[in-house]
Design a protein around this nucleic acid. Structure first.
Lengths: 233, 233
DNA sequence: CGAAGCCTTGATGCGCCTCAACGTACGTGG
DNA sequence: CCACGTACGTTGAGGCGCATCAAGGCTTCG
């Protein structure tokens, strides 16, 4: 457990609007831990023992089906809450959370949730706002899967990743953590083969650049056109 | 606005565990209204003015895409909360809510949410538990759409409807409100044609009975086998 | 240096959408 | 009450989108 300074985290959204003294108090109850790439933070169906905030890195949240298929529910970026089962009265985590890169994670014992929610209502409100946004995003994904073609969904997924986590480079916007074709296929309900073909085609067309575990968006608007469903260009 | 007796609603889940006097208080602030079949309770992107509990009937919650496709997010059964945007800090409703049969709906002004949540924490907790369950169900739907074939999804949808809202008849379990092929296709991300074909086949095989806007599940376990993904029987 | 992980590209086929046409129940107004 | 329009349902024919199967190349790491 490392020491934490309130000023380091006062700016991140979940803590927005909280009194400084409360922040310090809340932090004193938290544990900070480093997770190397690939390490699991929590596991699907495991008893929900803690809730978390990601201070640095990227976390992949994955659901596993009974017959072994994986579906990536979302990527968590730094500054975001995750594993907040307690806030929703869930006894178990509904998915796996795995570090997609080296991460720093802040955690509180789940048993503290009720106390925290009562004592720091601003924090609770912020949390529920996050839940609301995620619920909407998840609904959007349902709509997407139900109505759009693979090509659109993949374009969309890449655009979102680029917007959320992208880092500007000379070539364009680079997705800031290693991501495979397989990963993208698990976000979009398709196969790595199809994703590979699409990326190849888009690379030829000059919309993206891609290497092993790396994707750079060079022509975002053109990708957006594909995401909108207009066939080709 | 009709008069309401606390005993009429004390048993429904959102009010579970609330003191009787609080119940009466909370009820006194509510409005009760009747909605005939097809009438809209609230509209997607409309400002969230109220939150609701369904006392009787069935409500269909539908998302509309920019290009006019409809996706049925869920059906609300009696005793359930809906339109709880305020609890999640959302300013607008994310979908349409339409009466699928004659309904009775209880509603509170959205501006009351904060006060209600503070004064009746049990009610708030119950609400957030509901949100948690719905978030999980929505995630499940994503997984389903991403990994299962149409046949499985349709079987699953019908089974769920039968379990949630089914009424026992001599033939089996009847889905308790009028539902079209189109409705089912909008729940499962397919077309009414495919649903029609599947139902025809299942009727021939003796798994279901179906008439206009009516579906009865006669052999639930066999349907469940199909939902599990085993081809045919 | 070998093994494992990641990526690519072709060939093949089938699941399901699309297009099309028609039958049937419902309810509304004359 | 019947006639007609509309909503709902069925079933066929055709074809496309994408999964699946298959094989091989390249990169990373122990």
């Amino acid at each position: 457990m490392s020491l934490l300074d309130a000023s380091l985290i006062a700016d991140i959204p979940p803590f927005q609007g909280m009194k400084r003294e409360y922040l310090v108090e809340l932090l004193s109850k938290a544990k900070s831990e480093r997770y190397e790439n690939g390490r699991t933070v929590f596991t699907q169906d495991e008893e929900a023992h803690s809730f978390f905030i990601l201070l640095d890195g990227h976390i992949r949240v994955v659901r596993i089906t009974p017959d072994g298929d994986q579906v990536i529910a979302r990527y968590i970026s730094s500054g975001e809450l995750f594993g907040i089962a307690q806030a929703l009265g869930l006894e178990r985590y509904p998915a796996n959370a795995v570090a997609a890169v080296e991460c720093v994670v802040l955690s509180w014992p789940g048993t503290l949730w009720n106390m925290v929610a009562e004592k720091y209502p601003t924090f609770a409100t912020n949390t529920y706002r996050t839940v609301g946004i995620r619920l909407q995003e998840t609904q959007d994904k349902v709509v997407e899967l139900a109505t759009e073609r693979v090509e659109q969904r993949v374009a969309n997924a890449i655009l979102k990743l680029a917007n959320q986590t992208g880092r500007k480079t000379e070539d364009g916007i680079l997705i800031d953590f290693p991501i495979t074709r397989q990963d993208i296929s698990e976000m979009t309900g398709t196969t790595l083969h199809t994703v590979s073909r699409l990326l190849s085609a888009w690379e030829t067309a000059g919309l993206v650049k891609s290497e092993r575990k790396k994707i750079t968006v060079t022509e975002g608007h053109k990708l957006a056109v594909i995401a909108e469903g207009k066939r080709e260009l």
